[in-house]
Design a protein around this nucleic acid. Structure first.
Length: 572
RNA sequence: GCGCGGUUAGCUCAGCUGGAUAGAGCGCUGGCCUCCGAAGCCAGAGGUCACAGGUUCGAUUCCUGUAUCGCGCGCCA
């Protein structure tokens, strides 16, 4: 379905043609929403561009455009303002009808990704370590992008590229044999694995013999020793179990979980092949892919390392093998990597290397800013800094629970628990998603736990109020044709109608916050509407109209919340 | 040194391909629950969009430079 902007832009194009401006060598400016209702609903700024190309006064051009707008029932008023703005006001009847016809957000969203496949690589925690707040951004943003792409028609492959291979497993296996606490492992396996690893690593500093033991264990594992292999599989399994519980709570799903180990068997061949083709070279005992500054700004001094001088592979090697596998398996048209800003150079190198090899694609490093703790430190397992993800979620849910109990103590216990889960976790997700991903963010409890203002519960609350109205009037009362009796009703209708456009923009720009911002506006405008336009009134036509407005608003909010990974609620 | 990014209200942040008087939340001041859910609404105070040039009819937005902060730059991921 066409957007309001597209419908109006078509009319302006027709008017410009009728006015004799058709051969002007300029692209048509699309009509855009006004930011002040006194200037109508939409405006065209085409006359400025056209006036310049024709060396004519833009105001005169604007007047000729307005004079030549074809007969239609869409535009109620078109007038020239200022130096050449064309302000357009939609006809109430047409707008009302159009909003009703497009109330199904999914059906109204342009399928820009039809026939296209996108692989989205996100979250990617390291096995045998607990997830902490630092994992939140990649997981939450990646999930929203996966949902947005799917909604826009893309075939999506969400891939959790876990860190399940590497020298840390030698240490872990060595420590497991001598230091493990079976009770602790039974209670919380991943926590115990993390403790074993961290303790062992500390002790290696004073005892080089431990390092040798770990190396020997790593070698055994890589040689395929059955006992080592079984342990490794166990570690991966318990880790994935725990991550799975986190993902369930966060509303995150993956189509595949193919970690680093999956690619391990092909790495040696990959490197030797690149050496043979002359794409890679030996340098200082290591194997690198060298670039010039033509391959990318500043890359001349930054080769990609794909084999260490001791023969071991690196994550650049694995990432190349991963690209190859994905191309052959899914043939994606676009590949998204959702990681933090610090990996920018790595991905520029990786993409440049892929291009040299002949695996070019629409690779996108969707980077996000640092998550800092209040002290300024970066959350990381290594430094032991930061809360575990699980405890952060629990704290948020517990806080939400006290609020739910206070405000809705009459609801059944299990429903209050479910509401608290949705509200508490939603608050955390929304805090992240409502911000530009590239902005650094400081972890602050007050911000994460907030349930008022521009927060997830605010959006959910607007929806719950609408549901409450429908419960009150009963399902037998059908929403009817929309009539506009108050400016806020028009404002709400136009805003809701823009939802599919915003979804497309959020998707194509990798910016979930565009959608979050829009949903806040919808909820905010609905709240004004709710305050000044009673829905359950005696006038049957008016009631049907307002119910219809409630209904399309609910459709938009529900779709939008789901796209962000939030849970729409009937009551809260 | 090179590369990337930031600098917008007291605080935390939006600002979509340049458009008319720069927005939101929190905090602050004042109002609104015998009326569909006050996790809400209405009103108000609060900004030299870091600075200097440039392009343009028009710049918070694009370009150049400066200041300042953050991140990254060969055997970790």
């Amino acid at each position: 379905m066409s957007t309001l902007s597209a419908v109006l832009t078509d009319l302006i194009r027709a008017a410009a043609t009728a006015a004799g401006h058709a051969d002007a060598p300029v692209p048509l400016d699309p009509c855009v929403p006004t930011n002040d209702s006194r200037h109508g609903d939409y405006q065209s700024n085409f006359a400025f561009r056209l006036g310049k190309a024709l060396r004519t006064n833009p105001r005169a051009v604007a007047e000729s455009i307005v004079a030549h707008i074809p007969e239609n029932d869409i535009i109620a008023k078109a007038e020239v303002a200022g130096p050449g703005f064309v302000n357009l006001t939609l006809a109430d009847a047409w707008l009302a009808q159009n909003v009703l016809e497009n109330s199904d957000v999914a059906a109204a969203t342009p399928q820009i990704g039809a026939d296209k496949t996108v692989v989205i690589d996100f979250s990617s925690p390291n096995v045998a370590k607990r997830m902490h707040v630092g994992h939140l951004r990649s997981t939450v943003i990646g999930n929203a992008l996966a949902r947005l792409h799917r909604f826009c028609g893309y075939t999506v492959v969400s891939d959790n590229h876990i860190g399940d291979w590497g020298t840390q497993f030698g240490m872990l296996i060595a420590a497991w044999g001598t230091d493990r606490n079976d009770d602790a492992y039974a209670a919380d396996p991943v926590a115990e694995l993390q403790r074993l690893y961290q303790d062992y690593k500390k002790r290696i500093a004073d005892d080089s013999e431990l390092l040798d033991i770990a190396r020997a264990e790593t070698a055994k594992l890589q040689a395929g020793d059955p006992a080592s292999r079984a342990l490794w599989e166990e570690f991966v399994r318990v880790s994935l179990d725990e991550y799975g519980r986190m993902y369930d709570r966060l509303g995150v799903t993956f189509d595949v979980t193919l970690g680093e180990s999956f690619y391990n068997p092909v790495l040696a061949e990959l490197v030797s092949g690149l050496l043979e083709r002359g794409i890679a070279e030996v340098d200082d005992g290591a194997v690198i892919v060298r670039f010039t500054n033509d391959d990318g700004k500043g890359l001349g001094k930054n080769p990609l390392l794909i084999r260490k001088s001791d023969g071991a592979s690196l994550y650049g090697t694995t990432d190349l093998a991963t690209i190859d596998y994905r191309q052959k398996t899914w043939g994606p048209d676009r590949v998204l990597y959702v990681t933090d800003v610090r990996q920018q150079l790595h991905f520029r190198q990786l993409f440049a290397a892929a291009k040299k090899i002949g695996w070019d694609n629409d690779f996108q490093h969707v980077w996000f800013g640092m998550l800092r703790l209040p002290g300024g430190e970066v959350a990381a397992t290594r430094s032991g800094v930061g809360e575990t993800l699980s405890s952060v979620l629990d704290t948020a849910v517990a806080h939400a629970r006290t609020v739910v109990d206070g405000k809705s103590g009459d609801l059944p216990e299990d429903e209050r628990a479910a509401i608290a889960e949705a509200v508490g976790i939603g608050a955390i997700l929304y805090t992240d998603l409502s911000q530009n991903p590239q902005t650094d963010i400081t972890f602050e409890w007050d911000k994460m736990l907030a349930l008022e203002g521009n927060t997830a519960p605010y959006l959910m609350y607007a929806l719950a109020r609408i549901r409450s109205i429908f419960r009150k009037v009963g399902v037998t009362v059908a929403p009817g044709p929309i009539q506009f009796t108050d400016p806020v009703e028009r404002e709400l209708a136009i805003l809701v109608r823009r939802t599919p456009v915003v979804i497309g923009q959020a998707c194509e720009n990798f910016r979930p916050n565009f959608l979050a911002e829009h949903l806040f506006q919808v909820a905010n405008t609905f709240a004004s509407f709710y305050g000044q336009c009673p829905v359950i009134v005696d006038d049957a036509d008016l009631r049907a109209s307002r119910l219809a407005l409630c209904n399309v608003t609910a459709e938009a909010l529900t779709a939008g919340l789901r796209l962000l990974g939030l849970t729409p609620l009937e009551r809260m």
